[in-house]
Design a protein around this nucleic acid. Structure first.
Lengths: 220, 220, 220, 220
DNA sequence: GATGAATGAGTCTTCATTCAT
DNA sequence: AATGAATGAAGACTCATTCAT
């Protein structure tokens, strides 16, 4: 099969290998997975895999990098809308986007993210990748919080940066709890957040959803 | 040295080994650490280590279990007080307890927790350990939220369980961000949370700290 | 490109591959060189190389064989002249022919010869090639020594065969020292040899160089 | 078997491995020998060999280094005597020492030297080892030639350094011819050398052997 | 003839664990 | 109890060679 010289085919081979890698990583963990397992899962020969990735480290990095990109593609549209969702609706949207993604793939996104975070603690390249992502995520949230304050959906006494950190924390925690204790409902956390923010206040804040379909309560 | 027969000495040997294990895990990750590294770090012989732990898996489990206990010891006093701290003060207290712990040890608690979470995804025994911990943590927070509602420090419209989940999420996220992006200030996150809850509301809610030293604002 | 059917073109392809092979062998040694390196150096495809050589062994044999032929072409004219150079002049001529060859190529002939010798120790085909060459070399020297004795340039007490062995030894050693310790001057070794043979005697013996340009002392 | 902690036992294990390595190197060449072959030949396990040598390179270097030392031990006594052997006697002595060594070991010293030389062409550490040896060898010969000149056993017209180079060349060549064409007799080469130096002259020069046992002709 | 992706046996090396002392 | 040399299965990776195109 003459594939390597065709950039499109080459890319598809790389993806085929990454998919196999993730299946294995997800099953046994990144470091407990041997190349042989990935090779077998991909249905290729040892040499073939090394034709597409320089080594195990390269493969791990590519695997994680790919997932970071998928996450970005998932969140960017939500975070960068000109007229962002109000706080509770955003929380509902972000969490349900993650939940849906996990359901549509066979593998648990939350679990993968936990593995990536852990890997970043001892792998400089992965750390750079992930902390870069977090920085961007935080910056997007900061902008968003600023808009909320302008729109009066949030009291404007605090630094948007600090609020963004708290908000990001909350999303991270959603991932952790989903992975450790099973799926967490977007509805449940939205309700919980509403309780934390104060029923009346929250209600008042989320008074003007631009589109009905975006109302958290209108979603399954 | 007849140590194994003396339960106290035996325990101290076990702890010596665990301490060595954590130094290594922290440096290179759990799976990238070889027994040989731990053995050398502990200053023992291979045989000795196997006298105290059945194998690497046993050691990993004990290491993680030990850290879960330390965390429990850290949080239980704060979470189970008869008269709990009000919301913002609690957030400040929990986060600053973690920060202090990390500072007093040479190794980053947040980093370790990330590794443990990841390990739990592919190791049933670890998963049981950690999810058990989370369940307890969540239950304690649920009780606490109930008390806040009774005391009027939180509006009582939402199910305390749901609020507890959100609160726990926030703590998890504090760990994640600290590990990925560097230490997060307890003050910063308390401020951010105050902003999220609503400046006026939050202030009102946190009106009665029982002891002045617990006021977040009174801390460095 | 229909090249293989054209004998001349085919030969040039073979030479192109051999040249690439030697560049690699010289850089990393014969056995540390992979086919892939040779293939890349030759600017061909893997399949193409296997069209011209049956495999790595075949290529090694051809590479060594080629160098033996080059050496033969270098030495035969000097050794088979009807009226041979006298001893010291011959020594100077042989050594300077090698030195010049090395200078004109980018790769060190002495180094290559060492590799070939070593290879011959564990490769029967190469051994046959090389010892055949040595036998011929020795035979030519034997004839030459005979002529010297007839001409009175060497005392005729010893068996020319034995003298030829010693002479050949000397040439081999020139190669070894050049490769191990850097280039050895033809002038230096000629002087050294003169000293060993005895100044007066040597001078007397080398009294009749047929052409002035061949006098060692007349050379740079 | 507790051996590693005992320096003497450790050394003997290292030698056991080296001996196995040389048997293999001699049979198939240095680079064509796999660690597995050496391990099997040594009768050890893979891990054990790596307990004594860091890796294949380390083993190769040690193997070569060991042989250089053996050669040194062989030659130094001959080269550094206060009253050195006269030229022809020395040549006979050096060559017959090598011949005897090869006979007493199962493996051909000449062959090994060829492999070492070749290895030195692409292995910096080996090159340093071997060229250092050659430099010393040459220096010892230079001193020796000086003494010969003083004693009138050699005409003193040439620089002893140059004569030493030629002499060394001759010894190198003896090794090469022995390896390529089979064993070369010390007697043969001594006779050949006598012929080259000039029968009368040589005889005169070698007129005063200090001990009759040292006369080449008196040897087997 | 020419290509280069694919193969898979083989290489070097590591490592959890054991056991004679 | 304590040691640490030894084990050998398993790991990551390489490479000569083939073959569909």
């Amino acid at each position: 099969m003459n594939i390597g010289q065709n950039p499109i085919a080459r890319q598809s081979r790389r993806e085929q290998i990454l998919a196999a890698a993730w299946k294995c990583f997800y099953r046994r963990g990144i470091h407990a997975t041997s190349m042989e397992k990935i090779i077998r899962e991909a249905g290729l020969s040892a040499g073939a895999v090394y034709l597409y990735y320089k080594g195990k480290n390269d493969l791990i990095l590519a695997a994680i990098s790919t997932y970071m990109e998928r996450l970005r593609d998932l969140f960017v549209p939500i975070l960068t809308e000109e007229e962002p969702l109000p706080p509770l609706a955003l929380i509902h949207e972000i969490t349900s986007v993650m939940t849906k993604f996990t359901r549509s793939t066979k593998i648990d996104l939350n679990s993968i993210i936990l593995m990536c975070w852990s890997e970043s603690q001892t792998n400089e390249a992965v750390k750079a990748l992930i902390s870069g992502f977090q920085v961007n995520y935080r910056a997007a949230l900061t902008k968003l919080v600023g808009k909320w304050e302008k729109r009066g959906e949030l009291e404007s006494a605090s630094d948007p940066k600090d609020v963004a950190k708290v908000l990001l924390s909350f999303f991270h925690g959603f991932i952790v709890q989903s992975a450790l204790l099973g799926e967490l409902d977007p509805e449940t956390v939205t309700r919980g957040m509403k309780g934390l923010l104060g029923e009346g206040v929250a209600a008042k804040r989320d008074i003007r959803p631009r589109s009905p379909t975006r109302m958290p309560s209108s979603r399954k």
